[in-house]
Nucleic acid binder design. Structure first.
Length: 399
DNA sequence: GTCTCTGGCGCAAGCCAAAT
DNA sequence: ATTTGGCTTGCGCCAGAGAC
């Protein structure tokens, strides 16, 4: 809100440099005046633009397009613009945590609440916390620099840190690995040394464990509000009527080629046959991944019964379960691991070639084919169970 | 106005089953 | 035996109601 009342703003230049900007004449009326004021007080050179913490979005940083958005005690952030129009921090430290992420990326990622659209970063960037938390961390870091004293962490502080970091991690992965958690915990301690802990070799083991717990709780929370890709993995989604429904659809162990799970409670072979028939038409529709995914999940048990019990041939199986032979859809269905398009394309190619060989000759053996099978088998072991069906069939066909 | 009680809610951590 | 992930538990915060 522009006005003539004196105002104070918190200006973030980088992680180690946050300043207080006093505006005796109030918040300027134009962006240009605002930029000049910051440039003068903070002694900045070069071009930059600004973002501010928007209360409407839980204090997330939003591009500043009008000074009317600002009020007394607002936190703003300076985003330098280099000559080639790309953004980077040439004012001070170039590795500042938020600097390399453009706000466009931030906006896109925050709007994508149910999918991980970005690859895990080489260097994980710790997000900006709430004003209160940042203030405490800033003070804590200053104390830590002078006497190595660690910050006493309140419940609220811990909670805010875990929440924001979990949100940031979720942008990349719903199920981060142990190594990912290590990366993030280390990044957290690196950015805020006052958070380091005694009792572990790198001072961040506790944070790693807390983040694991938080991520689990965060997933539960998201499931509660209907995050589809997490619901797929929950026990309840497999058989809602039972308290421990996972018992009803037993997952196969590794390399368990003859795995046959029971039909879930509340389902019958007839009902699942109807689902199978509807799948035949669903696979012909475009952009129908969600429906196919759901129906394929539902019919997993009967499918396995056919494959293992009835020993269907490849062609017959293809006719009955066409979705099983659509690699992209199937892979996306059975795994939450975001796969790179190149990787998928390569698998698609291998799989296509194998199918061609089998179709033309049947029972073909050979070194190349075996190598391809090895790749597929590895992928099946690493990523999925249902996909193993294909490897099982192909192995069978090549005998 | 303020103090106390209470119920609801959110959270981190504990627990347990399943997978490896 | 260890790890992983979902579900449960218990603690603490907070808002609202009621007593003084």
């Amino acid at each position: 809100m522009a006005g003539k009342r004196p105002a104070k703003l918190r200006v973030i230049l980088n992680s180690d440099d946050t300043r207080k900007l006093i505006l005796p004449d109030g918040i300027p009326e134009t962006i240009e005046q605002m930029l000049n004021e910051v440039r003068k007080v903070c002694e900045l050179n070069g071009n930059f633009r600004m973002q501010y913490q928007d209360r409407d979005f839980g204090d997330a940083l939003v591009n500043l397009t009008s000074t009317a958005e600002l009020e007394d005690l607002t936190t703003v952030k300076v985003i330098p613009i280099t000559d080639d129009c790309s953004e980077g921090f040439n004012i001070t430290a170039s590795n500042e945590s938020m600097s390399t992420q453009s706000d466009d990326t931030e906006l896109l990622s925050s709007s994508s609440s149910t999918t991980q659209t970005q690859l895990w970063p080489t260097v994980f960037e710790i997000p900006t916390f709430s004003f209160e938390t940042e203030l405490q961390l800033e003070t804590g870091n200053a104390v830590h620099r002078s006497n190595m004293e660690r910050l006493s962490i309140s419940f609220k502080l811990k909670s805010d840190i875990l929440e924001k970091v979990a949100e940031e991690m979720f942008k990349y992965k719903a199920y981060p690995t142990d190594a990912d958690f290590s990366d993030v915990a280390e990044a957290l301690i690196k950015k805020h040394p006052c958070l380091s802990e005694t009792g572990s070799y790198n001072g961040c083991y506790g944070w790693k464990q807390r983040l694991k717990t938080k991520m689990g709780n965060y997933r539960t929370q998201l499931k509660g509000i209907g995050c589809s890709e997490l619901l797929v993995n929950s026990f309840k989604s497999k058989a809602p009527a039972d308290a421990m429904p996972a018992k009803n659809v037993k997952k196969p162990k590794r390399v368990e080629a003859n795995h046959i799970p029971d039909i879930p409670t509340g389902e019958t072979s007839d009902k699942l046959e109807i689902e199978r028939l509807s799948l035949l038409s669903e696979v012909k529709k475009r952009n129908n991944r969600t429906v196919i995914k759901s129906k394929m999940d539902k019919t997993f048990s009967v499918r396995r019964q056919e494959i293992v019990g009835k020993e269907l041939g490849v062609e017959e199986l293809r006719e009955r379960w066409p979705a099983l032979f659509s690699i992209n859809a199937e892979f996306t269905r059975i795994t939450t691991v975001p796969l790179q398009p190149r990787f998928l394309a390569s698998l698609d190619k291998h799989y296509g070639r194998l199918m061609e060989i089998i179709k033309k000759k049947g029972g073909v053996t050979g070194e190349k084919t075996r190598n391809i099978l090895e790749v597929l088998d590895h992928v099946c072991t690493c990523f999925a169970y249902d996909f193993g069906v294909r490897v099982y069939l192909l192995t069978d066909a090549l005998r």
